[in-house]
Write a protein that binds this DNA or RNA. Structure first.
Lengths: 186, 186
DNA sequence: TAGAAAATGTGACTCACTAACATTCCGGCG
DNA sequence: CGCCGGAATGTTAGTGAGTCACATTTTCTA
């Protein structure tokens, strides 16, 4: 039993691998769920039980909910957008995402596939809501809070998707740069 | 021939009306394109020829491309996010959108229907790209420009969708408020 | 009023996604 | 060893959005 996890985890991993192979061979849109399932020797139904949607293979994990805590910890007398940006900055510095090749590949695919963007945005919705709530808890008007959170997530997502196109640049630098822009540092 | 436009325009208008009736009766998701077409006495095919997708009935018109010009007209020594925000502000002041009941109804539906959000975002993509390009033409790094444009559009879209929930508030005030937030005016 | 052009219809298809129900795999326990 | 229960997977049959090639009607113009 050297392999990690039970049978389900293994099937899930095989589906992920097959999916990325096919995406690389034919592109995301041209690949059908049936093809992915077939390559693994499994039914479409099994795919949907593991992922729920075709998007989910690529988008996968939701963003950090602990970002919200970092936002809430920022001084409430700052303008809300600055408060949010500083919160994310401190959260990142506390626990950065290591940018391995796998992540770069996934982000690259996401950036190169327009039909995937809705799913990407949807994946950030939870974080956006959490940040908005954290801002509102500090006395910011709820709509103002939502607007700032949306601006922040828009900036972060665009930075993330633009990162793979800049070889040699670290993800951290790209993210922090986006935060600088929100704080008007030119 | 007192009616405006040719037959196509009339069919399109009838499809829009029928669609919004059905959306009001049963909700957007529960309404099928076949139902819309049937109510007008027309085929699904005709619907798709007029709209291209179910989303398009609600999302409809693309945003102002002249916003980009206003952004480009702002002084280049401002931080890019400020430059973008001031550009939109000046564009709005030059030619505001009149907020009639029809617009409010459409925005309301969009705000209340999560499955519509992807289409809404997609509808702003052209404006976002135009603003990014205007910023980049002023010497801003292309990725920085894209990040700022995304933040701006994120803020504006959220403000727009949040507007109908505030009876008595004008759309203009809501938009200008969002721009204030991007410029750190609390 | 004929004839081109615009508008619409037909039928068949692909693909994502869902649901109810049946079946097989696998580890633990007597 | 052999049985048993739950997890994992299969089967079948759908719905609904969107596309395509081709036929037909309607509308406008010369």
């Amino acid at each position: 039993m050297t392999t990690t996890g039970g049978k389900a985890a293994r099937t899930r991993a095989r589906l992920t691998d097959a999916a990325f192979e096919l995406f690389a061979e034919q592109g995301y849109d041209a690949t059908t769920v049936a093809q992915i399932a077939e390559r693994v020797g499994v039914t479409e139904m099994t795919f949907y039980r593991h992922f729920g949607s075709k998007d989910a293979v690529v988008v996968g994990d939701p963003y950090d909910p602990l970002i919200a805590a970092a936002v809430a910890a920022q001084p409430t007398d700052l303008p809300p957008l600055v408060r949010a940006a500083r919160g994310v900055r401190s959260a990142w510095e506390g626990q950065p995402l290591d940018d391995d090749e796998a992540l770069r590949a996934r982000v690259s695919l996401g950036a190169a596939t327009p039909s995937l963007r809705p799913a990407i945005r949807a994946g950030t919705a939870a974080t956006e809501a959490a940040i908005a709530e954290a801002l509102a808890a500090g006395g910011t008007d709820p709509l103002d809070a939502a607007v700032c959170a949306a601006a922040l997530l828009g900036a972060l997502t665009t930075a993330l998707l633009g990162w793979p196109a800049r070889p040699g640049t670290t993800l951290g630098a790209t993210i922090l740069r986006a935060l600088d822009l929100l704080e008007h540092r030119p």
